Amino acid sequence: MTTTPPPPARLALYGFHRGDNGIGRIMCNLANGVAAHGVAVDVLVSHPDSADLALLSDTVRVVALGAHRGADATDRLAGYLRRERPTVLLGNREWGNRQAIAARRRAGRPVRLAFRVGSPPSASLARRHWPNRAWHRARLIRTYRQADHVIAISHGVAADLRAVTGVPAQRLAILRNPSVAPDIDQQMRAPLPGHADRTRPLLLAAGRLVGAKDFATLLHAFARLRRHRNARLAILGEGPLRGELTALAQHLGIADDLVLPGFVTQPAAWMARSALFVVSSRFEGGPNVLIEALACGIPAVSTDCPHGPREILDHGRWGRLVPVGDAAALADAMTATLDAPPPAATLRAAMAPYRAETAARAYIEALRLCP
């Protein structure tokens, strides 16, 4: 009697994040890392027009569903589930998670659903007005009850998620982001035309130009530092507060020392030319750019915001932590780190768990995709 072997494991990534942030890059690292371990990987997109998709290896298949949201998108996702029968569908965004639940029901296939949570849900709830906040929390609870696996990117996000949604501990895993691409050394050597000034140290920050990143406090801290040190500051990212930040830099007298290059797909080239990386955020989930900077051997300082920097910096072991919104403390930490930076090799070694190949293996084991 011949036994039919089980079909090979297949992971489908849904809710691919387009836009001026680093989440798409992280998901590409995850897809490449999982595929490198012998698991088939599909990246599901509405339209294959994201620049980040160019980062995918040839072993990863991009599936264009041709619809973004609504009933048509749910139908097309259900059709994919019926046709391809992936082992696990990994959702990366709240709307995508809800569509995945509806599509699985419509497809009638026993695909396991995994939902990845990259930021504390309490932060998104806090931005909503009552009673919309209560309604949204109830929807989150309903959504996560139907997941087979829930993945939090840090212990802080996991604790926040449990408090908000009550997701059972047995379905919750805390997995490192695959933040460090295998070719990060090659990325560090990429040229930066027009930004070759090596006469002054470059301080670097990165993120959406929005209030949560609190780049205003960073500008105030940098202005303090500039009183006694000749340095430059670059903030990689784009967003609605560009005009306000430019005006504040003019007011503080540091406009000539500030560079706002916009969104950068691969920031390692900037990091390699920096003397210090700075996180000034009010809250985070697990800032990938902080991990990347440390993996490049660049010293860092960060606000002690919820949730992520304290965990990444090992309670201050790999970089100084300062109170949120305290420009004076941030300036002092920046100065002290520039004066006595930790060894680059030590920082790179500390970020080994975040390397794509290592983090991807943890995903494979948690999702039971072992080939």
Rank of each mutant, 00 (worst) to 15 (best):
N288D: 01
W130V: 07
T3F: 07
S124I: 03
N177K: 05
L175F: 05
A54P: 03
A356K: 00
T2A: 14
I153E: 03
G253R: 09
V62T: 15
R361C: 08
R109I: 06
G19V: 03
L172S: 03
P287E: 11
Q146P: 06
H129V: 07
L175S: 07
P121V: 04
R139M: 02
H220M: 13
A158M: 00
M1E: 07
S57Q: 12
L241P: 13
P341E: 08
G239Q: 10
L276G: 14
P110R: 04
Q186V: 13
S280I: 06
A366M: 02
R61A: 14
T358I: 13
A234R: 00
A9F: 00
A159D: 07
Y363F: 15
V180L: 13
R320N: 01
G96P: 01
S57C: 08
G194E: 05
A255G: 05
D42L: 05
A345M: 05
L321M: 10
A134L: 06
S154V: 01
L218N: 11
L90Q: 15
D214C: 11
T335A: 14
Q186I: 08
P267T: 10
R226I: 10
A359W: 02
V322W: 00
R226C: 13
R242N: 04
A336P: 09
L30N: 02
A269H: 05
S46Y: 07
M188C: 12
F263Y: 15
H149I: 07
P110N: 06
A9M: 05
D214S: 04
P86D: 03
L290V: 15
M188P: 06
R128L: 13
R310S: 15
V180K: 05
G96S: 11
E244Y: 01
R176T: 08
R85H: 12
D197N: 12
A173L: 00
D75R: 15
P48V: 00
F115N: 11
N288G: 14
R76P: 11
W130G: 04
G237H: 08
M334V: 02
L321V: 05
R69G: 15
I312F: 04
R25T: 15
R139K: 07
S50L: 00
T346W: 00
A9G: 11
S119K: 01
Q266N: 15
R61D: 04
A221Y: 04
A64R: 13
V324G: 09
A67C: 12
A181R: 12
A345V: 05
